[in-house]
């Protein structure tokens, strides 16, 4: 078959989070001689095909066997290597117990990087949409959990997880991503940022929901509501100090994530807030449901995690705040 007859790969958008991750990992690899990348036959989909091409001697093909791959990464880390395990989020969940025991419990310096998280998988349907990964990995003691919002932040987070000594779970993304930040953006594990100012309500988001929260803030601004938007790329450890400040200054919160409302960003925020000074919180995410087939944007609308729904949640949160006063 001639090259012209080759099937077109779907979804290989140039500005996706997975591309940002794969390219940055490839670019900075020479600075990390112990870096090794593991793949379970999905390198073309996770962005690490760039790495495989540039650094074939640091790339381990494990075959379609995620359990072995994750525990093997723990073994590699035990010998001083810095393994980055890559795969699709739903299939990496298959190796959850390996992540728990061999990585988390043994506290190995393993980085688990998952593409195709949440509804981002789109037409592949509910079977492939990992909507519980943040909750699952957050529950492993000592595991850092990260979900960057744009390609710049994804690239910065890629370096940050290599610099950090300990187990990390990080989401990337498959779809073309909205560019939110400039080259002067700063990413620090455990820190969120206020990316839009406001005093009426705080919208706390991670991943693809950050862009949607900014849109929601624009919708709210049209009715005179000043919504603050917080980008919260680290779900664990959550930035408690920033949340505390937001509660004091805005009195109510909305969380937004491409994930089940149970166990992910919303839960992490609620846990932190109730420990300090409680306030009304509304959560945007999937309402304890699995996904289904559709394009990611259609699915976001179908499952009510787009800007109008975030704005509506903000109005509810504000009404609850006023009721308390």
């Amino acid at each position: 078959m001639s090259e012209n007859n080759a099937p077109a790969l779907i979804g290989s958008s140039g500005d996706s989070l997975r591309e940002a991750f794969g390219k940055e990992l490839t670019r900075i690899a020479p600075e990390y001689p112990k870096l090794v990348v593991l793949d379970a036959d999905v390198a073309g989909g996770t962005g690490v095909h760039h790495f495989r091409k540039a650094h074939p001697d640091k790339f381990i093909q494990c075959g379609i066997a995620e359990q072995n791959m994750v525990a093997a990464a723990a073994g590699l880390a035990a010998t001083g290597m810095i393994p980055v395990v890559t795969g699709f989020a739903c299939f990496l969940e298959r190796a959850y117990e390996q992540a728990r025991l061999s990585v988390g419990y043994a506290r190995r310096n393993v980085k688990i990087v998952a593409s195709h998280p949440g509804l981002d998988v789109g037409p592949d349907g509910g079977s492939a949409q990992a909507l519980e990964d943040l909750a699952a990995f957050r529950a492993i003691p000592g595991m850092v959990v990260i979900s960057p919002a744009d390609p710049i932040e994804q690239a910065l987070a890629t370096r940050a997880i290599l610099e950090y000594d300990g187990p990390v779970y990080m989401r990337t993304g498959r779809s073309g991503s909205v560019r939110l930040f400039n080259d002067d953006h700063v990413f620090e594990i455990g820190k969120g940022q206020i990316i839009r100012h406001g005093l009426d309500v705080t919208l706390v988001a991670c991943g693809v929901e950050v862009a949607r929260s900014l849109k929601a803030a624009e919708l709210l601004a049209e009715e005179g509501i000043e919504a603050r938007v917080v980008n919260m790329p680290t779900i664990k450890p959550i930035d408690e100090a920033l949340l505390k400040r937001c509660v004091l200054e805005t009195g109510c919160l909305v969380t937004a994530e491409d994930h089940n409302i149970y166990g992910g960003l919303g839960s992490a925020v609620a846990e932190a807030v109730t420990k300090n000074r409680p306030c009304p919180i509304e959560m945007i995410g999937l309402k304890d449901s699995f996904g289904t087939s559709g394009e990611p944007d259609e699915l976001a609308e179908h499952f009510q995690i787009t800007a109008p729904y975030i704005a509506e949640a903000a109005r509810r949160a504000m009404a609850r705040k006023e009721h308390l006063q």
Binding site: V36, K58, A71, A72, G75, L76, S102
Partner: peptide, 15 residues
Amino acid sequence: QGFSVAMGMAMGLRM
């Protein structure tokens, strides 16, 4: 799991 970890160690040593 120990078996898989051991395999990873063997890979790491060889690398």
